[in-house]
């Protein structure tokens, strides 16, 4: 069993209004950053998953995205495997 570090990025679906992104866009403009074309705000969720393979860990994370971590009506998600390490006995698994 290997312990995988995964990053899940959840972002508002392109084309949907993203009010926080819009507010930040306005704020950046008023600070003088006029070249900013678009701002979208999402969230990043870090997971540690013990699994026999990276593929399996990613599969589980994607299932979590569909069930809980993202809203299929308004958000898209992206899962990346950041790193992996040995699972040591006696750790908080």
């Amino acid at each position: 069993m290997t312990r995988y570090q995964l990053e899940v990025r959840v972002v508002p679906r392109t084309g949907l209004l993203d009010p926080p992104g819009k507010a930040i866009h306005h704020a950046l403009h008023s600070l003088g950053y006029l070249g900013v074309e678009d701002v979208r705000v999402g969230k990043t969720i870090f997971l540690q998953i013990d699994a026999p393979s990276g593929r399996e860990a990613r599969g589980r994370a994607e299932e979590m995205c569909r069930k809980l971590l993202s809203n299929p009506v308004t958000e898209d998600y992206e899962v990346s495997v950041l790193g992996e390490g040995e699972v040591q006995d006696g750790t908080d698994s």
């Binding site: 508002p12 993203d18 009010p19 926080p20 819009k22 809203n71 009506v73 308004t74």
Partner: peptide, 17 residues
């Protein structure tokens, strides 16, 4: 109810934030 799939759609952040 929307999250549970009892009703369609979703409730997003207010336009005014």
């Amino acid at each position: 109810a929307c999250e549970a799939g009892l009703l369609p759609g979703a409730l997003m952040r207010n336009r005014t934030v």
